[in-house]
Design a protein around this nucleic acid. Structure first.
Lengths: 231, 231
DNA sequence: GCAAAAGTGTTGAAGGTACACCCATGT
DNA sequence: ACATGGGTGTACCTTCAACACTTTTGC
């Protein structure tokens, strides 16, 4: 047994969620592409591909996500590296998996992009996945649930302006448990990271809710001062 | 620019700590090896090496740690993958870094092993490191500080039987801040994960402290029930 | 007997959880 | 007018932080 050189790939687990009416429970979605080549031709898979010679891992995954699925995640971080021999039937391939979030206003569901075979799948109704991608996706879901509680990444899943109910439903969706409305609002309010735009969302069937905006600049400042976001 | 095959390595950041008398403050230590070949010959580096053709990443890092430094970590998890082009001056090498803990009773400091050029270095007085290993070590230190608070891995740094003061000093060392003795004892006690051995450590210069043992089996059970350890 | 570490409880502050009603709007 | 989601405050309980003295042992 000797050391060799192996193919090195990156895969991106990109989650998205559209502004969902409370109660509707559309749920979290993940971006998958349909494979056009062997192996697993026709199967759905995480977008990704081989790392080019002069690019970093992060540049590689961003390039692949843009080429294959037309998305540019507003948040992206390395998830885990999967390197089990045999995970790719052709040849040993080590893949560095990344986890990312995409705002729906940047990537409308089922929109026409050059990636005709990319689409969002609800996490509750996934197709069979190629390679060990089901496992990777599972690791990603757990990481997202942990991460969202102490880093304000939920905002990367919402349009720039959103209502408190939308934010709450999003957190409930990710955490897979209900949250108390009044406690949630108090907690979010106390962070001081929400800006009241003064605007209302009109046109809904009921009382018009206030629209808020995430104060990203303020978070950057607070973060450097050691501030800990927590929900 | 095209995709190629790259060298894939694993590196282990192994932390250790000997039972330290309170106040002595010996601090956390990390295991380094002195390089015998170019590049960076004579420099200190993290133990590690290339992944063999039929081994998983975890097997590879365990093998390298045993071969190069003679240690078998009682806790080990993947840290991060570093793949910046140019991080190895010879040829592009992607390294999957791991973080581990070793109990001192398994690996006496400066003991003679077949790894003559391996030794513990105090985190406060590190030598210059080869490659980007200083950066990797920094990432590992932060991860350890975060991890130790909500996973009972501190016990992997102590001998099987230890005193509460030793445990507290260990936590203070890792977290780099003092802890209140009474609050610490209450918190640790409430987890129900410590077994009183009934024994005392005699031979010390002062009042003999009780010896405790970590109840690993009980933790395994509690963990599966969703129990969250927290200090 | 003294120096040094072991061991032990209480109190006040803060934060978390549970809970119910009125308000505004569109149909 | 009614159905639906928007929006608000309080009381209780749990948890966290701060704090000082007695006990045991070796020298």
């Amino acid at each position: 047994m000797k050391a060799g050189r192996y193919r090195v790939a990156v895969d991106g687990v990109v989650f998205g969620a559209r502004p969902i009416a409370a109660g509707e429970g559309r749920g979290l979605e993940v971006l998958l592409i349909q494979r056009g080549v062997e192996p697993y031709v026709g199967s759905w898979a995480l977008p990704g591909g081989l790392v080019l010679e002069d690019e970093s891992l992060e540049v590689a995954v961003r390039r692949e996500l843009l080429e294959e699925a037309g998305v540019e995640p507003s948040w992206l971080e390395q998830l885990y590296t999967f390197g089990q021999p045999g995970r790719d039937p052709r040849e040993r391939t080590i893949t560095v998996a990344w986890i990312g979030l995409v705002r729906p206003d940047r990537y409308p569901p089922s929109a026409a992009t050059d990636a005709a075979d990319a689409r969002w799948w609800p996490m509750s109704k996934l197709p069979p996945l190629a390679f060990d991608h089901a496992h990777i996706l599972d690791v990603a879901r757990e990481r997202l649930q942990g991460k969202v509680r102490y880093q304000p990444i939920g905002f990367d899943l919402l349009p720039p302006e959103f209502t408190l109910s939308e934010l709450q439903v999003l957190y409930e969706t990710i955490l897979e448990r209900p949250l108390d409305k009044r406690n949630f609002r108090r907690k979010i309010g106390k962070t001081g990271l929400l800006l009241d735009t003064g605007k209302m969302r009109t046109g809904g069937a009921h009382r018009a809710p206030r629209l808020y905006r995430f104060d990203r600049d303020r978070y950057t400042v607070l973060e450097q001062q050691g501030y800990l976001f927590e929900i």
